[in-house]
């Protein structure tokens, strides 16, 4: 149980809003496609803030321009990993960007255990900090 207002990991563009409906997800997909961005679906059982590389549910869909097709991929990922964090990521290949342009969570575990802050006291009043993902106390594949 996390202690922030929504009891949830707040990564991504829309974590302060109610969970997105399929209609809302599709609208965001259309926006990205309209900009010429490629969409990708990624999932993880370790949402540590610096865990950059979530698992790819297939490669980015560079050639898929049909929002319904992309939603189908998202739902297929949700079906396979119902208790994982799943995010939709958009990539721009435009010079000067060439990076991620959108990222929003579309699935999350029922219970989000969150993170602990480990403080290591060092010289003087100085502290070394480690953010610990409680989910990773369990082995891979058994976390949620």
């Amino acid at each position: 149980m996390m202690t922030n207002l929504g009891n949830r990991v707040t990564q991504g563009q829309f974590s302060f809003l109610p969970d997105l409906t399929d209609v809302q997800i599709t609208a965001q997909i259309k926006y990205a496609l309209g900009k010429g961005w490629a969409l990708s679906v990624e999932y993880t059982d370790d949402p540590h803030p610096r865990n950059t590389y979530w698992e790819m549910f297939g490669n980015p869909m560079f050639d898929l321009k049909d929002p319904a097709g992309i939603l189908m991929e998202i739902n297929s990922c949700r079906k396979t990993f119902p208790n994982h964090y799943i995010r939709v990521v958009a990539f721009s290949a435009v010079r000067g960007v060439e990076s991620v342009t959108m990222s929003y969570i579309v699935n999350r575990p029922k219970k989000e255990p969150g993170f602990g802050l480990v403080r290591q006291e060092t010289d003087g009043r100085t502290m070394r900090y480690t953010i610990h993902s409680y989910a990773t106390d369990k082995p891979e594949g058994e976390r949620y």
Binding site: P47, F115, G116, R119, Y129, I131
Partner: peptide
Amino acid sequence: MDAVNKASAATGEV
């Protein structure tokens, strides 16, 4: 920095 790290842990964000 204590505040920053504590908030990061509470939200899962950088």
